[in-house]
Design a binder for these strands. Structure first.
Lengths: 234, 234
DNA sequence: ACGTTTCAAATTGTCGACAATTTACGGTGA
DNA sequence: TCACCGTAAATTGTCGACAATTTGAAACGT
C-alpha cells in the first residue's frame, strides 16, 4: 500500500459512519479537498450561487456542506456577509502547533496505556514502510510529510478517546494538511523525525505513557521551533 | 458583580462578534442554553418540524442553528435520521477531562508568558470575590462550580491563542456546563480548589509557565480522579 | 478632485413545498 | 405467539422563490 493510499484510507475511515449518502456529504468532502489543496484560494470569498451552480445543487444543500466546513475551521462565516476560506498565517500555524503539542502529547500518553499489541505492530510496520520508501526516493519531502501525518493519525486513533480523535483527526488535521499543501515547507527535519518516531513507538511499546507524551511534545515542538526560526529570519 | 453576572458576561463576550443579528443566531443561543440546562433532555431526538413550530421559524433557519450546535458537540447527527441531543456518560466525562488537562495546561503555560499585569489583577480579583462569597454562603456548590469555570475561562482568554480559545471557550465549556447542570456533582473539592487556584495564579504571576501548566493539569486531574473514584465505587 | 449620498445589483437570510428515506403499524403466514 | 413483510405516516433531504441586507457604482455637491 502506498503512502497516499494509506492516507486516503485512514482519512476515509476517520469519517466514521460516513458512507457518503447525501449530496451535501459529497460536496463537503470534495470541497474540503479542494480547499486543503488550495484549488479554492485561501482568503477567497465563497459565492453561494456560483458554487451551487458549479456542483449543480441548491443553495440549501450547499450551505449544509459549508456549515460543516466551518466546523473544521476551513471556512469562516460572518452574519449577512457569508463564508470565506480561512487565511493561513505563520502566527496561526504556531497556534496550531501549540494545540497539537498538548493534544497529541495527551493522545500519545493514552495510546501508551491502551494500544493493543496488534495496533503497535501496525504502527511499527508503518514506520518501516516510511523508512523504506524514504531511502528509495529521498528528498521527496511531500510524501514524507503526509506519511508523518499518517503516523500521528494512527497514534491518536490508539488513544481510545473519541473526543481527542474528533478534535484532531476530523478537524485539526485538515488544517494541518492545508498548511502543508500551501506553505509547502519541505521540512529539513525529515531524517531526524524518523528517529523521533522510532523513540515514540518504543515508549508506547514499553507502556511508558509519561515518556511517550514528553517525546511527542518535543517532536511537535521541534517543528514549531523550525517555523519560528524561519519567521524570525525573514 | 455577582458570579452569575460574571459568567453571563464572560460567555457573552466569548461569542466575539455575536451581536445577535440573525434569527438562527437567537435560536442557536437559546437552544444551547436549554440543552445545557437539560430542558431539552439529553439523548432526546430533535424533531425539526416541532422545534421550528416552537420557535416560529422555518426548518431552514432551524437547521442552521442545529448545525452550529453540532459543532459544539451538543448535538449529534446521523444522515437521513436527524439530530439527537448528546448523551452524557461518565466515560465521556473522563474523556473531556483528559482533553481539558492537556489544553488548559497549555493555555495556562501560555497565559503565564503573556498575560498582562492588568489581566493578572483581574484574575486575582475574581479569586478573591469567589473566596468572599464562598465564606458567606458556603455549601452553595452551584455558584462555586460556575465560578470555577469562570476562573478557567479567564486563563484561557489570557493564552492569546485563538484556536485554544475557540476550542475551549466556544465549544468544550458548554459541554462542561451541561455536565455540571445535569450530573450536578457538588464537588467535595471546593475548599481545596481555592488553594489550587491561588497557586496557579502565583505561578502565572511569577511567569513560570512550566509550573503553571503542571499545577493546572493536576488541578483538573484531581477532578477527574474524583469522578473515576465515584465511578468505581458504584 | 474628493467625499457623500442614493440607488440598483448582488448576496445572504428565510420561507414553504416537494422528493427521498426512514419509521411505525397493521396484516399475513407459519 | 412470533417473525416477517408491506403499506402508510412521519421525518429528513433538496429545491426554487422571496425578503432583508450588504455591496458597488453612479450621481451629486462642495
Amino acid at each position: 500500500m502506498s503512502h497516499l493510499q494509506t492516507i486516503i484510507s485512514n482519512f476515509a475511515q476517520s469519517d466514521g459512519a460516513s458512507v457518503v449518502t447525501t449530496r451535501a456529504d459529497t460536496v463537503f468532502v470534495d470541497l474540503r479537498q479542494r480547499i486543503v489543496e488550495g484549488q479554492v484560494p485561501m482568503g477567497s470569498k465563497i459565492s453561494e450561487p456560483e458554487l451551487a451552480r458549479h456542483y449543480d445543487i441548491s443553495r440549501s444543500t450547499l450551505r449544509d456542506a459549508l456549515s460543516r466546513l466551518e466546523g473544521c475551521g476551513l471556512l469562516e462565516r460572518k452574519a449577512n456577509v457569508g463564508y470565506r476560506v480561512v487565511t493561513l498565517s505563520t502566527a496561526k500555524l504556531i497556534d496550531i502547533f501549540r494545540v497539537r503539542e498538548s493534544l497529541e502529547g495527551m493522545a500519545c500518553h493514552l495510546a501508551a496505556q491502551c494500544m493493543s499489541t496488534e495496533q503497535i505492530s501496525e504502527l511499527k510496520a508503518l514506520l518501516q514502510e516510511h523508512e523504506r520508501s524514504e531511502s528509495l526516493q529521498q528528498g521527496e519531502a511531500y510524501f514524507q510529510q503526509e506519511g508523518d501525518l499518517d503516523f500521528h493519525f494512527k497514534i491518536v486513533q490508539g488513544s481510545n478517546n473519541s473526543l481527542l480523535i474528533r478534535l484532531l483527526c476530523e478537524e485539526l488535521y485538515f488544517l494541518v494538511r492545508m498548511y502543508r499543501y500551501q506553505f509547502g515547507m519541505a521540512s529539513p527535519r525529515a531524517k531526524k523525525a524518523f528517529g523521533e518516531h522510532r523513540n515514540i513507538i518504543q515508549a508506547i511499546e514499553d507502556k511508558d505513557g509519561e515518556l511517550a507524551e514528553i517525546l511527542m511534545r518535543r517532536h511537535i515542538a521541534a517543528s514549531r521551533l523550525n517555523v519560528e526560526k524561519r519567521m524570525n529570519t525573514q
